[in-house]
Amino acid sequence: MIRWLLLLMLAVMPAPGPALAVGDPADQLPNPALEERARVIGRELRCMVCQNQSIEDSDADLARDLRRIVREQVAQGKPDEAVLTFVHERYGDFVLLRPPFKPETALLWATPAIALLAGALLIRGMRRRQAAAAGPPDLTQAERDRLAQLAGRPRE
């Protein structure tokens, strides 16, 4: 049953193809190299309306406007960094899909490291406790003698 469901899901899933450009082809730059640069820049920029898509992936009106602005500036010969700065100045850190590292974003960037460290400490602690609880302390010589006596065989 589950296997059938999985197969069905695979069949229904769209095949991964070349990423489709959203929007009006008329907005694309005629020069393919410049268009590719504009796309790379656009993929760094969050669509503020849908929030979890880049402006290259979004069909929102505002994303289209920003795509046009990015292309305009690329066509004018602005470097990538300057185009990103233009949008960043207006929309703040949130518009960058890769937020810059600064005091306000330090916790955001440090979270994976903190989680890893916490996990490592937890595992170490558990291991240590396991080792401590591994077994009772060894028998003393007197206990061993007594045991041998009870078992009724001579000590080796």
Binding site: L62, D65, L66, R90, G92
Partner: peptide, 11 residues
């Protein structure tokens, strides 16, 4: 809507 973008408007 270009002035709005200079303001950082998103809706």
């Amino acid at each position: 809507g270009r002035v709005a973008i200079d303001w950082g408007l998103y809706g």
